[in-house]
């Protein structure tokens, strides 16, 4: 989750108050998180696909599952594309497809190694990324100007809410993918704790990151395509340590691969559960290829991608992140209510 938020820095439209939008975004996301925890907690040991079947019956369950899987699949493709665009900006003459292809290969490899591999990979990557970003932070600290955080209320409440909402759907709302992979953590309390820690960590990191971008750029914040990258581009220490862009890009890439492979893993796991395949590893490659193709053809230019993030995505994502789980949950509640009633009637 950290990954693409680092590249795209959500909520930065809110100007100097952006770092606050991360916090409010988390607050807005809390119902979504609650739904995820509730769903997985009520049906321990079941993935999203399985519990859809239980709650909604085999037909509607499948339809819902396929919608979710499409979302994960698309999200993975979006993440890939974000990185492809980013890399292409740094290395302009290399075709985006090359970056996408290579990255997808890696993502598929990681997804194939299963949830254990993903978790172990993430442990090391998050550790190294934090170190790397910490180092970068130290290097840019010279350029940070804390007064850029003022004034806090430079934008209207409506704009602020809108920016917060953007943060809610991206990245916090994406927590729904947890419902797909969470069955591998066996303890309900543990799930709750891990989900909440993950969110809070993301929140802290996100706000810190936004603070760092705001203070690092000041008014300049308005113009760069990748603000986080622009901060790093400013680093110049005695003319010796300059252009450490690569360091930042590395951390981005590692985290992005993680996110995309979680999505891919969720998709292939879901498909294998729907089709009752004995193992998911066999479909990683075909699905990965499709993901690569989708990421390649979905946008003609990075500007299109940018517009998609700005305008369409918030509503698009809300459908999967809020509407579908809410519907599932209320049907579940209704069914339980009914059974209780009939139980009572029977009694």
């Amino acid at each position: 989750m950290l990954g693409s938020s680092v590249v795209l820095s959500p909520g930065l439209n809110a100007g100097s108050a952006s770092w606050l939008t991360v916090v409010t975004g988390l607050a807005l996301a809390s119902p979504l998180v609650w739904m995820v925890i509730k769903l997985t907690g009520d049906y321990p040991g079941k993935t999203l696909v399985e519990l859809n079947d239980v709650i909604l019956g085999p037909l509607w369950g499948k339809i819902f599952s396929i919608m979710y899987l499409w979302y994960f699949f698309h999200l993975g493709a979006i993440v890939l594309r974000d990185f492809g665009d980013f890399m292409s900006t740094i290395m302009p003459t290399t075709p985006t497809s090359v970056f996408l292809l290579v990255t997808t290969a890696l993502v598929a490899y990681l997804a194939k190694s299963g949830i254990e591999g993903i978790v172990r990979y993430s442990l090391i990557i998050v550790f190294f990324s934090f170190i790397l970003l910490g180092l970068v932070f130290i290097l840019v600290s010279n350029n940070l100007n804390l007064s850029s955080l003022l004034p806090v209320n430079s934008i209207s409440a409506w704009q602020f809410l809108k920016a917060s909402y953007e943060v809610t759907v991206f990245p916090f709302g994406e927590i729904i993918v947890y419902a797909m992979i969470i069955k591998y953590t066996n303890n309900y309390q543990k799930i709750k704790r891990s989900v909440i820690t993950a969110l809070i960590l993301t929140c802290i990191f996100g706000s810190l990151f936004n603070i760092y971008v705001i203070t690092g750029l000041g008014n300049y914040l308005e113009i760069p395509t990748y603000p986080g990258y622009a901060v790093i581009r400013r680093v110049d220490i005695f003319g010796i340590i300059t252009r450490i862009d690569i360091g930042g890009a590395t951390a981005d890439l590692a985290l992005g691969v993680l996110k995309a492979s979680v999505m891919l893993y969720a998709v292939v796991l879901g498909i294998s559960q729907i089709l009752k395949l004995p193992t998911y590893t066999s479909i990683v490659l075909p699905v990965g290829t499709l993901m690569f193709l989708l990421s390649l053809i979905q946008f003609d230019s990075s500007v299109e991608n940018f517009f998609f993030h700005e305008t369409t995505y918030p509503y698009y994502a809300a459908f999967f992140q809020a509407f579908l789980p809410a519907l599932t949950l209320s049907i579940d509640g209704f069914k339980k209510f009914l059974t209780r009633k009939t139980d009572k009637a029977a009694a």
Binding site: T89, M91, P92, V235, T242
Partner: peptide, 10 residues
């Protein structure tokens, strides 16, 4: 100088 990826902005 700002748009191109090559030059430094410092």
């Amino acid at each position: 100088f700002l748009r191109d990826a090559e030059p430094r902005i410092s």
